[in-house]
Design a binder for these strands. Structure first.
Lengths: 349, 349
DNA sequence: TTTAATAGTGCAAACGTTTGCACAAATATT
DNA sequence: AATATTTGTGCAAACGTTTGCACTATTAAA
C-alpha cells in the first residue's frame, strides 16, 4: 500500500508549480529563476535551483515551445539515410546544431515527391524552427517548399536544389567539377571521353553534363550523343552504359561517370572484357565513396566535402534564425571540390 | 497599406478557434470534428473540414502533444550517423515508424558517455514517447538509461546493449556468428586461427571472442594469447595487428577480425608482404560493409541484416506503446546472421 | 403520455511554460 | 524629507489543443 503511493509519487512529474509551492513563490518567479532572469535575486535563484534538484524537476520543452513559439527542432529532409553522402550530412548537421541546442528530426523522402510533401507537412505541424532539405529525384513541382517559405521559417537547401526557390543553397560547383575532370582526362591523353550522367531534370546532373560538354569544346574534343548516357547512376546503369559504349564503332578512351557506383559498374565490364584501365580506357567517378580508394584499380573521384556542407547548412540556418530581419533571397554558397586522382585515370606510371 | 494588412493576415496562423468562430461553433466541437469523433454529426464534420480547407488551417502538434501527453516523437541514439550500419538503422527505423505517424529525433553520442547522457536528457525534456538506442563504446555506467525506464517510457536497445538494463533488446548472436566463422575456416583447412577483436568491455565483442575461443576448443585448435588482439577495429588497427601476427614464430594461417575495416588493414599488410590470400592466410571480417564485395580479393564477412534489425526495433517500440500493460523485462530478440563466403577465405577454387 | 435513452453540442479546465504589466519595498536622487 | 528610481516578486493571460461533464433536443421504450 505504502509502496503503491510511493510508486505513483515517482510517476507524477514535478512541474514548476511544485517548486513554487514548495518555496512559497509563484510559477513566474520560478520560471524566471530557472532561466537566470536578471530581475530575480541570487538568493531566490539558489533556492529554486536547490529545490529543483531536490524535487527531481525536469523541464517540459513542449510546454515551453508552445508558449514561446519556438520548438528548437529542425527538420532534415533527405532522399534516404543510408547513403554515404547523406549520412555524412546527417552527422555534420546534427553535430553542429546540437551545439546550439537544436535537435533534428529526420525524414526520408525515399526519392518520392509525395513522401517529400508528407514530410514537409508533418514537420510544419510539428512546428519545427526550420527545414534543411535536399530534393528528391522525383521532385519537379516546388509548391510545398513555397509553403515553408510563406510560413516564414528558414528553409535551407543543399546539394540538390533549384534556383527558383530563391532561398539559401549550399552546394558544390558541379559544372566546374566536371570541367576539371575532363581537363584531367585530356592531360592523360584521352581524346574521346564519354559521360554516364544523371538525369538532366535534376539540376546538379544538368550542370555536370554542361561542364563536361564545355570542357570537351574547349579542347576540341568530339561531343556526341552516343557518348552521353543518362541514368540513375547505379552500378547496373554503369554496366549497361559501358556495354553500350563498347558496341560503338569508335570506342571512347575515357569514361567519366557522375557517380561512383556507375563508375564501378563500368570498371567491372571493362575488366570482364580484359580492357586495361587506365591505359585503354581511363575512368573517373564522382562523390568519392569510401570504396573508390579500396578497390583495385582505385577509382579517381570528386570529393564533395560533405561534412563541411552539412556544417555550413546548419550554420546558415542558425544565421537565419539569429537574423530574421535579413531578407530571404537566393543565396548560393558554393564549396570547392577536389579531384582525387587514383589509378583508374593515372597513366603517368 | 492594404497589402500590409494582407501580409499580416497570411502570417497569422489559423487555429481551431478561428474555425469555430467562422462556423458559430466551439473549439471542442471543431476539435472533435477534426478527430472524427463519433459524437459529432456528419453535417458538422463536413462543414468543419470545408472551413478548415478554406481557412488554410494547419494543426499544431505541439499543443496537441502537450495536452495529450503524447508527442509522437521517438528518440534515436546512435554512436554516429555516418557509418554503414547505423545509417541503415536510421533508414529502417525511420521508414517503419513513419508508417505509424511517428517522427524520429536523431542524436549522436559520438561514442562518448557524456554526450550520451546529454542526449538522453534532451530527449526526455522534449517528451519523446520512447527511445531506441545503441550504447556508446565509452558507456559503462547505466544510470541514465535507468532514468528512462523509471519514467515509464519504452526503451529499446539494439546491437550494443547490456542485459543488466532489463529491457527489450534486438541484436544478433555474436557468439554463434564467431563460431560459424571459425568452423568455416576449419573447413578450409586452417589450423591456426588468429582473431582481431574489439575491446571486451563491449558486450558484443566479448561474445565474439568467446565464440571464437569455444570453436577453437571444439576443433582442438590452439588458443593462444598471442593470437588475440583487442583494438578499436579501424583499418590501422588491422594493419598493426597483422604486422604483429607476422612477427610470431609460428604464423597464423587465418585471421578473423570482428570488423571489416580491420580485415581490410590486415589484407593490405598481407599483400604488401606478398602473402597469398586465402591460400597462405585466409581472412574473414564482420559486418559485411559494402566494400567487402567490391575489392580484390573480396572479403568474406558476416551480414547482420541491419535493415531488419531497425525495423524490428521500431516494431518492438510500437508494441510497447500499444501494450503498456505488458511488464518490462529483459527481452532479447536475436536475429540470424549470415556468413558470406568470398574469395578471402575460399580455398576450394 | 410519461420516462428513459441517445445524439449533438457547449463550458471550462487542463497540459506546463512564459511574459507584460502591476505593485510593494528598498534604495538613490534632489 | 519628499520624490524618483531600482529591485524583486506576483497576477493573470496566453500558447493551441483535448476532454470530462453538463445540458438540450430528439428519439425510443414503457
Amino acid at each position: 500500500m505504502h509502496k503503491l503511493i510511493k510508486f505513483f509519487d515517482i510517476k507524477k512529474k514535478t512541474t514548476i508549480k511544485d517548486i513554487a509551492k514548495a518555496l512559497n513563490l509563484t510559477s513566474s518567479t520560478v520560471s524566471r529563476a530557472l532561466n537566470d532572469n536578471p530581475r530575480i535575486s541570487n538568493k531566490t535563484k539558489e533556492a529554486v535551483r536547490l529545490a529543483a534538484k531536490e524535487l527531481n524537476y525536469e523541464p517540459n520543452y513542449l510546454a515551453s515551445a508552445l508558449r514561446k513559439g519556438k520548438s528548437n527542432l529542425v527538420g532534415l529532409i533527405i532522399p534516404r539515410a543510408n547513403s554515404n553522402f547523406f549520412s555524412s550530412i546527417v552527422k555534420s548537421v546534427g553535430d553542429r546544431l546540437s551545439l546550439d541546442g537544436y535537435n533534428i528530426i529526420i525524414t526520408q523522402s525515399n526519392e518520392s515527391y509525395e513522401r517529400e510533401c508528407e514530410n514537409i507537412e508533418s514537420l510544419l505541424y510539428t512546428q519545427v524552427d526550420g527545414i534543411i532539405a535536399s530534393l528528391a529525384n522525383d521532385t519537379v513541382q516546388l509548391d510545398h517548399y513555397e509553403k515553408i517559405k510563406s510560413k516564414g521559417i528558414p528553409l535551407i537547401i543543399f546539394d540538390r536544389g533549384e534556383d527558383a526557390l530563391g532561398v539559401d543553397y549550399i552546394g558544390i560547383d558541379d559544372y566546374l567539377s566536371s570541367f576539371k575532370v575532363v581537363e584531367h582526362l585530356y592531360d592523360q591523353g584521352c581524346r574521346r571521353i564519354a559521360h554516364i550522367g544523371g538525369y538532366r531534370h535534376t539540376r546538379i546532373y544538368q550542370n555536370r553534363i554542361e561542364g563536361y560538354i564545355d570542357a570537351l569544346k574547349k579542347y576540341n574534343l568530339p561531343v556526341e550523343d552516343d557518348l552521353i548516357i543518362e541514368s540513375t547512376l547505379k552500378r547496373e546503369d554503369g554496366r549497361k552504359a559501358m556495354e553500350d559504349f563498347l558496341k560503338l564503332g569508335h570506342r571512347p578512351d575515357a569514361v567519366y561517370a557522375a557517380g561512383d557506383f556507375a563508375t564501378l559498374g563500368a570498371l567491372q565490364v571493362l575488366q570482364e572484357h580484359k580492357i586495361s584501365v587506365p591505359d585503354e580506357v581511363a575512368l573517373v567517378g564522382f562523390s568519392n565513396e569510401p570504396f573508390t580508394s579500396l578497390i583495385t584499380p582505385s577509382i579517381s573521384s570528386i570529393e564533395q566535402h560533405s561534412e563541411a556542407m552539412g556544417r555550413i547548412a546548419a550554420e546558415t540556418f542558425l544565421d537565419r534564425i539569429n537574423h530574421p530581419e535579413k531578407p530571404v533571397k537566393l543565396n548560393k554558397i558554393v564549396l570547392d571540390t577536389e579531384l582525387i586522382i587514383r589509378q583508374s585515370s593515372n597513366r603517368n606510371k
